[in-house]
Amino acid sequence: MIEVKNILKSFENSDVLKEIETIFYRGKTNLIIGQSGSGKTVLLKCLLGLYEVDSGEIIYDGVSSKKMNSDEKLDISRQMGMVFQGSALFDSMNVLENVRFPLDMLTKIDENEKNSRAMKFIERVNLKDAINKLPSELSGGMQKRVAIARAIVMNPKYLFCDEPNSGLDPKTAIVIDQLIQEITKEYNITTIINSHDMNSVIEIGENIVFLKEGYKIWQGNNKEVLKSRNKEVEDFVYSSELLKKLRN
């Protein structure tokens, strides 16, 4: 579980996150949604520790970011997995090497153990037949699956996904969303997904945080978001005229 307590983040006198207070639950797919420029990515980067917050605190399973020294921060960061928007796979490595990479870099286990652990997660994302392929030889959906396998190979407590289905067709996007949700349940991970895709929101949004202009405007789940009478949430969820008519 990650608790966010009253955090504030600004860049060059421009406040990007303002008084954000929320909880991201363990074993659930937590979604951060909102329009472009609402502060989603900055919040995700603060949670990842890539940005320091100006004030407030982030509590990772009872451990406050405020009280951590650099070694403890490194320790927490090694319990995190991240799926980047563009997958961020290493171009010169094949699928197996990409998934094995965190094990090579951060563990002292022997080669056979590394391979079998990497293979376990590659099989979990259904890419057993593509282990020798380079990222350039994979489709967008396959690249995302490799990125997911790499993110969970270290058995992280926290999984972060930055728009995991951007650039994918709706059918593949749903497959990726469902895979993330299954993994979240299977390994009991605190998963936080940054998205503005309404399909994802409806499909896997167990805990949704809606941001607008740096403020948390609303929080609920995928059933509540469709019925919400909050003006900003309504404008976001029913953004097209067609959807508005269908709702009415």
Partner: peptide, 22 residues
Amino acid sequence: GTMRVTEQIDALEVMGINSLNY
């Protein structure tokens, strides 16, 4: 630069790896 643009450097940092040393 390409690693920076394609977020590969961010991926290293998130894994807790000193990307400059690597």
